[in-house]
Amino acid sequence: MDNLADLSVSLGRIHLKNPVLVASGTFGYGEEYQDLVEAAQLGGIITKAVTLEPREGNPPPRLAETPAGLLNSIGLENPGIEVFLKEKLPKLRKLKTRIIVNIAGEKKTEYLDLAERLGRETGIDALEVNISCPNVQKGGLVFGTRADLAFSLVKGLRQATDLPLIVKLTPNVTDVTEIAQAAKEGGAEALSLINTILGMAIDVNTRRPKIGAITGGLSGPAIRPVAVRMVHQTFQKVDLPLIGMGGIACAEDALEFVLAGATAVAVGTANLVDPTVSLKIIEGLRQYLKKGGIHSFQSLIGTLRV
């Protein structure tokens, strides 16, 4: 039993048995993958976004592929907090892994309401505050692109709940570290980066956009270098644990983020390609530690040589 290398990490108050999470929107509410992935093996599950009211989402088609990438415009389709509490959370609670609930809204009061209600529930380990969705008309993203709004939102949330707050940042800004710093000052305990990059694809035969909402969020291997760069920049400037994501499809990809400064990683689009990829990544990280004679994963974080 010599390969029991310690993969556990801490994101502020959130302790993970291993650093591999599944990213919001790509793993549903945990139940969809249960035939194939034993949740207890994962570091944690970040749920699909939950909003106060049900949202029907954007008109289809909602997906288009680009080289090594995926454009989506799901538009935060979800059944709303009522149904989430009644139908999804009881099932999530049974899973032996960390449960991080992704919340989104158009107005500050919606976020605060959500946080208060979720804060009263058991079985939730943290909230991931989505201020970065490019697929909604109003709100949401605007909190992620203005430092003053990000600060006041996070500060409000900090008062609304005791749950650890992870703020999820958008890459669609000039300087991500400004928003990151504002989120920290507001009371964030960790940061997730990155959400999808605003993009577009056109069918030249029909001259129509390939997705119904015209623009969408780009994810997948194509965006990984952008994401790694943003993790690196944020790690340099902001003293908070980071969850790195964007195009992770194998252990090596995950390690790039860790060396750049991420404490944990989240796997998104790759789940759609291979539902068991996160388990393979965990095994790959274990092998990497073993090969390098490294005893603790934590000791790797931010050890980029420059």
């Binding site: 929107g25 790509t26 699909k48 989402g57 088609p61 989506n72 389709e77 759609l272 539902p275």
Partner: peptide, 22 residues
């Protein structure tokens, strides 16, 4: 048919319009 992502009901990428919603 619709363009598909996960194929398992998780990503909500493959919807079409039905009478009861997507």
């Amino acid at each position: 048919e619709q363009k598909m992502g996960c194929g398992l009901g998780a990503c909500l990428g493959c919807v079409i319009r039905g009478r009861s919603g997507y």
